[in-house]
Design a protein around this nucleic acid. Structure first.
Lengths: 201, 201
DNA sequence: ACCTGAACACCGTTCAAGT
DNA sequence: ACCTGAACACCGTTCAAGT
């Protein structure tokens, strides 16, 4: 008589687990988009049709869930940064990077804040990605400064913080169109009238 | 025989209640300064030496507590706004106002966020004060715009939001000196090099 | 009148039991 | 191996009882 198949991988079970995983991600994405990054995990599990324990099994922390959710965007961002390093003029490349960074931080309410606090916590699941974005900005800034197209006294932490601050600002009037680009251009050009308003002697 | 003094105000009791009130305020101020606006109310009550119920009796909501705590600063701000309306040049008056507003929002961690969300909620205890600040900025902005010293396309909501965003930004690196003024000057002047860097044709 | 703290409510997290 | 949900922990809020 044969023993019960103890070593045969239970394929159906695995694929079922995979499905739970995908459902959880989809529901998390929807919930984060709607209610921000601190949406209830219990609600997400319920919407995905699994127990709360299953959510925790797949994603031991909220950050871990967020990390998976943002993984693709982070890859995109890194590719774009690499391209911008070669793009001209350097000042415009930097401006584009700021816009890309801020738009990303504005994806979910609360994300800008989370990215900033991640930068302070090496153990965070998002730390490496966040650090990489920060470093990319550093290079773009240095190049723009060498070309005389960005203030010489700026540093990359300020730049990263300001991009996130503009995303934060655009969260502050929900229900309206996204203001991130508008705030960025105010930041980039300053609040004083431009040179077109200035009458030269 | 005289009846027991039913109508005599029980002064000692009242002054004791008054003391509790003052202790609560002092401890709340300390806790908010240290841990931000969402510090535990239970801890504040304990530090003040009263039961949690006493805290709730005096301050039915966290916002009510915050409102009393900020009452004097709000008065100061309104006075300063009135003076700035008469100050010259209008562009500098506006810049000063932004600095004052942002410095206030940077008093406690989380305050900038609270002020912004207050502006959306008419029922909030802070709503009137917040609205007044917003209105003061409106006047200062209009005057600076008429003098050609502020971008013509700015509106006062953007201005208020940006001042708070700079306070938010300066919360993002705790343990260092306050960066609010630095961020404000970057915002005001823009990230591009100033005219001193520009070579005219 | 004022204060207290146990009780309640809510939500995030863990883990023993089940398949 | 994977899932479940009751149990636990935590913290903010209320309210019956006490002075």
């Amino acid at each position: 008589m044969m023993t019960a198949e103890p070593r045969v991988p239970r394929r159906p079970m695995r694929s079922h687990a995979r499905r739970n995983y995908e459902h959880l991600l989809a529901q998390a994405r929807a919930a984060f988009a709607e209610q921000g990054i601190n949406a209830s995990l219990e609600d997400i599990a319920r919407a995905a049709g699994v127990g709360i324990g299953t959510l925790y099994r797949h994603f031991p922390t909220r950050q871990a869930l967020l990390e998976v959710l943002l993984h693709d965007s982070f890859n995109d961002l890194e590719t774009q940064a690499r391209n911008l390093i070669k793009a001209d003029p350097p000042g415009e490349a930097l401006a584009s990077w700021l816009r890309i960074l801020a738009a990303h931080a504005a994806t979910y309410r609360g994300l800008a804040e989370a990215l900033m606090s991640t930068l302070r916590d090496e153990r965070s699941a998002l730390y490496a990605s966040c650090q990489a974005l920060h470093a990319a900005g550093d290079q773009l800034l240095a190049r723009a400064q060498e070309a005389g197209e960005a203030r010489a006294d700026l540093d990359s932490w300020e730049l990263f913080t300001l991009a996130n601050a503009m995303a934060w600002a655009s969260e502050q009037r929900p229900g309206t169109a996204d203001h991130t680009d508008r705030f960025l251009s105010l930041l980039y050009e300053g609040l004083r009238p431009g040179m077109s308003h200035t009458i030269s002697p």
